[in-house]
Design a protein around this nucleic acid. Structure first.
Length: 256
DNA sequence: ATGGCTTAGTTCCTAAGA
């Protein structure tokens, strides 16, 4: 089965691309981020007509995450992360799809740094780690898929120099991500492409796509029970080159 | 690279993204 994470950068603007992807590629499960749409304006009927059940956690203008499943309705397990009741960003949605637990994650960007947005990013990573530990304790096949806004290693970017002051590449961001992996999660794309040089995001600006100036920030983390079933992982890069594309490409893992 | 794009809101501009 194929599980995809896709930061669509606006589900309304991206709906034609998303429907193409569902029809042409037919992934079994899709985790979406940056819906930029309220719960009421999520295009449920179009997605259902494409053959997918959906659970979504929207927000007007910003953020917003969803889980889609081909031919079945995902069952919601948790909406939002604990640990900060005043946090009203829609950035975490956890569902069950068959025997699999799947979470769609939109980790805060954290720029500019230093500042409250970067502090929020680091707290959010800590809160995610608490939830991830609880999931591991359940000993189930689980996939934490999403836009982590973390460039884990120097070989995950076209230019360390260009990104060195960015929140995506700070030591604190990286150590939070590494601590997550150290709990026992497998970075599926890294496992399948250990040499690095695989991008999931290309900026709209400065001809980044044409220059292949990208980096890797969309990740699919597997619990041990899911990692046992890992077949392959990759990026459906061609969708970044289409008309009206998102700045992220669909990124996927295939499990037995 | 202080921004070059892109999206959403209610707009003719601002905020946010990465």
């Amino acid at each position: 089965m194929k599980i995809t994470t896709y930061n669509v950068n606006g589900i309304k603007a991206r709906l034609p691309r998303l429907l193409e992807y569902l029809e042409e590629d037919g992934p079994d499960i899709v985790c979406l981020q940056e819906l930029k749409a309220s719960d009421e304006t999520f295009p449920e009927s179009e997605i259902r007509a494409a053959g997918y059940g959906a659970v979504w956690h929207g927000q007007k203008s910003w953020n917003g995450v969803a889980v889609l499943a081909r031919g079945i309705d995902p069952v919601e397990r948790q909406r939002g992360l604990g640990g900060e009741p005043e946090d009203d960003h829609s950035r975490y949605l956890e569902c069950a799809v068959g025997d699999l637990v799947v979470a769609s994650i939109y980790l805060p960007n954290g720029n500019p740094r230093p500042g409250p947005k970067f502090d929020y990013k680091l707290r959010w990573i800590d809160r995610l780690r608490a939830r991830a530990a609880a999931l591991l304790a359940q000993e189930v096949p689980a996939v934490l898929a999403g836009d982590y806004n973390v460039i884990p290693n120097d070989d995950d970017t076209y230019s360390v120099r260009a990104m060195q002051d960015d929140a995506l590449m700070q030591p604190e961001s990286r150590s939070g991500y590494r601590a997550l992996l150290a709990q026992g999660w497998t970075d599926s794309l890294r496992t399948r492409h250990p040499a690095g040089g695989v991008w999931t995001f290309w900026d709209y600006q400065a001809g980044a796509w044409a220059r292949d100036a990208g980096f890797r920030i969309d990740h699919l983390l597997l619990s041990p029970q899911a990692a046992d079933r890992l077949v392959d992982a990759g990026v459906d890069k061609a969708y970044r080159g289409r008309e009206k594309a998102s700045d992220h490409a669909p990124t996927w893992v295939r499990l037995r």
